[in-house]
């Protein structure tokens, strides 16, 4: 059967592609900063290193979820449906960090 309808291909959305490349450069830059910190900040500043790593990771996660997964441009109700359940994760981190501390006290 011969195809009669031709699919219309729209031209490349250059602004959008540039935006994605920019987000990629942000992600690469943040990863580079993480490496720089891993090799320049001495291990004596253990907690400073950990806090900075976690903050930078959350930045990366924000860019991936908001721009690549497009959640930042969705309806508010969809955003909240996805983000709010993550509070349970925060809760679990808090209770289990205390738990781990207690286990450590018993064992050592």
């Amino acid at each position: 059967m011969e195809q009669t309808t031709q699919v219309e291909v729209k031209p490349v959305n250059k602004a959008k592609v540039r935006h994605f490349v920019k987000v990629m450069l942000y992600l690469a830059a943040i990863t580079f900063i993480e490496f720089a910190i891993a090799f320049t900040v001495p291990h004596e500043y253990k907690w400073l290193r950990i806090v900075v790593f976690i903050v930078l990771t959350i930045f990366k996660a924000y860019y991936i979820v908001s721009e690549f997964m497009h959640l930042g441009h969705e309806r508010r109700s969809l955003k909240m449906t996805i983000i709010l359940p993550m509070l349970f994760v925060v809760f679990l981190i808090f209770i289990l960090i205390f738990q781990a501390h207690a286990i450590f006290q018993v064992l050592y």
């Binding site: 699919v7 291909v9 031209p11 490349v12 959305n13 959008k16 592609v17 994605f20 990629m24 690549f68």
Partner: peptide, 16 residues
């Protein structure tokens, strides 16, 4: 991940 968003972008333009 970047090539994946570019595939999505091409899909929005019906660019097979």
């Amino acid at each position: 991940s970047v090539t994946m968003v570019l595939a999505v972008e091409a899909g929005e333009r019906m660019d097979r």
